Amino acid sequence: MITRRKEPFRYSMKEPVECQLELTTVNRMSFSGKLVPAKLIDISKNGCRIRSFLDLKASEHFIECRIHLRLNEENFIFPGHVRWQRIMDDTEYDYGVHLLLTDNEKEQINIQLRGLAAERKIKVM
């Protein structure tokens, strides 16, 4: 498992935020998939942790995805790839997703997250 827990400004949601996971490639093969319901647990400008009922067997596959998310009434689609998977119980899995964002997208996410922190909807870790 590869994590970046020492990265500054990781924001943890006080209540998980509804989002959707879209798989785009599995083992470098295009995958036209549906949007799968998920929950955003925490996020930074380089990555996020989501929770889903879907068992992707991430240790066995290279998985590229998109996270569809609404923050402060603004919709975002963040591309990334799954770095790790952890089983939470018999029906839910946590995933670490490395986000592949431009500098402009990183700045936009920081603006949105600072707004949520000011409203006390998230906490800075």
Rank of each mutant, 00 (worst) to 15 (best):
F31I: 04
M125T: 05
G47A: 06
S44Q: 11
Y95D: 07
H81G: 01
R49T: 05
I67C: 03
R5S: 11
K39V: 05
S12P: 00
E7K: 05
F78L: 10
R66Y: 01
F62P: 00
P37I: 04
Y95G: 03
D89C: 10
E119G: 05
F53R: 15
G80S: 06
M1F: 05
M29W: 05
P37A: 11
N72Y: 06
R4V: 03
K57F: 11
M1L: 10
N110D: 11
E7Y: 10
K123G: 05
H61W: 05
E107P: 00
K6E: 08
S32Y: 08
R114N: 13
I2F: 13
Q20V: 02
H68A: 02
I67S: 02
Y11Q: 03
H81R: 12
E74A: 15
N72T: 09
F53P: 09
I77V: 13
T3N: 14
K57R: 14
P37F: 12
F31G: 02
F76T: 07
G115N: 15
N27Q: 08
E107H: 15
K106M: 13
K45Q: 14
E7W: 03
E107W: 06
E15M: 11
E74F: 09
D42R: 13
E64F: 00
H98W: 04
L116N: 12
F9A: 09
K57A: 13
L40M: 15
N27P: 06
E119K: 15
I50T: 00
E107Q: 13
S52E: 03
L35V: 05
L69E: 02
I87D: 06
I41V: 13
P79Q: 01
F53Y: 12
Q112G: 06
D89V: 12
I50H: 01
L69R: 05
E7I: 03
H68V: 04
T102N: 04
F31W: 07
I43F: 05
I43T: 07
F9N: 14
P79W: 00
M88N: 12
Y11L: 05
Q108N: 14
L54Y: 07
L56N: 05
E22L: 11
N75Y: 13
R83T: 09
R120A: 12
S30K: 12
S59N: 14
R83V: 15
K106D: 07
I2L: 12
R28E: 15
E119M: 13
E22G: 02
K39R: 13
